[in-house]
Computed example of a mutant assay.
Amino acid sequence: MTSITAERLASKQTAFDEIPIVDLAPLVDGSDLHEVAEKIGRVCEEVGFFYVKNHGIPQELVQRMYEATEWFFNLPYEEKQQLNVANSGPTLRGYVPTFGENVDPENTRDYKESFDFGEHQDEVSPFFGPNLMPKDYPEFEKIAEEYHAAMMGLARHLVRAMSVSLGLPEDYLEQKQQKPITIQRLLHYPSQDATASQEEIGIGAHTDYGFLTILSQDSVGGLQVRNREGAWISAPPVDGTFVINVGDLAQTLTNDLYTSTLHRVVNTSGKERYSIPFFMDLDYDAIVEPLDVCVSKENPAKYDAYTCGEHKYARFVDSYAHLQQ
């Protein structure tokens, strides 16, 4: 994630005052891919954040994932620490305690704890390998794998629509995602009230440094998105929806046509908050540079080429205390 100190606001972003909702039904059932693609393209340019409804993910599965999430974070600290992300080596999966990650370290400390996992791999390499899982609750791993697979399916739908929105074949972007880096994260934001320190908020202002994020948030709220004028706009929970945002990789590929928008979490509700974001990137060795369709004489390429995996790992080093040590 890129901190507020390195922000890049795309020229097409607007002074939006609310987050739009996109109906995915015609995309999921295959009846009108182009209609949904046009809507997604427009909100990616103007806002970079949107809700999706009629996405095809059973609410029952989402509920089971929340129950498992609360169970995990209620474990004794010593048990969670046995699964610390530092024990996963380059795979970078596992438990991150409070203040173990800070996305805007010059301004805030992140008052949250998290747990990351992905698709199980036997071979260990950066972002790939086995998951660290609690041993006393076998259902946890089963639910986690089922939820991750569902998010992958939804992400594939969204990526096809994004390709079409750019005037490209629907499988164009997917060619860079044959074995993409994915992170399924569980988040717990401890209770804070209105008197909480401004230096310790749920998560500091940042843009996601990947390609696409699919977020489920509970009923507590606290997500805020910053518009072009610098105002923080609330993105409250909406029943039956996910919040989608594009990250820095998408902004690079589209040469700033799509907006990787600053956002943060401020949980001053006095309640525990849980959320479940899924991050989908590109293949580790995928080259990230502005697409030809987004470059012209009037709008030359704004970015030099870089490799997805190396870029992402460098951002983790910036944010994770154990990697800095």
Rank of each mutant, 00 (worst) to 15 (best):
N255K: 02
P277C: 08
A149T: 13
G89E: 05
T2W: 12
D285K: 07
E141M: 03
M162F: 02
F140W: 14
Y320N: 11
L186S: 11
E199G: 03
V36K: 06
V220W: 07
M152V: 04
V220R: 11
K302F: 01
V159K: 09
T252W: 05
P236Q: 06
L253H: 08
A144D: 09
E146P: 08
D318E: 13
E45S: 10
V317N: 08
D32K: 01
G230I: 07
I214M: 09
T182M: 03
V62T: 14
A286R: 01
I201R: 04
E298L: 05
E145Y: 12
Q198D: 15
S197N: 01
D285E: 14
S275P: 05
P138Q: 12
K80C: 12
I276E: 00
M151K: 09
S216P: 00
T195A: 07
D17Y: 09
F211M: 13
M152W: 02
G270I: 04
L187N: 13
E67L: 13
R93M: 02
K80G: 11
Q198V: 13
E146A: 15
Q13N: 07
Q251T: 10
H322Q: 07
R156K: 14
I57T: 15
Y51R: 10
M133R: 08
V225Q: 00
R93A: 01
F117P: 00
N54V: 08
G240V: 05
D110V: 13
I4F: 14
D283H: 08
K297T: 07
E229A: 15
Q184R: 07
P105S: 08
P134N: 03
T254L: 00
S296M: 04
V265W: 04
P20V: 07
P237S: 08
T195P: 01
S260R: 06
T2N: 15
V243D: 03
V62N: 06
E101I: 03
Q63Y: 05
K135Y: 06
P26M: 04
T254R: 00
R8G: 10
N267F: 10
G100E: 11
H311W: 10
G118N: 12
P277R: 08
T195W: 00
A301W: 09
E298Y: 02
L223M: 12
Q217A: 12
A68Y: 04
A305E: 12
V28Q: 11
V243R: 06
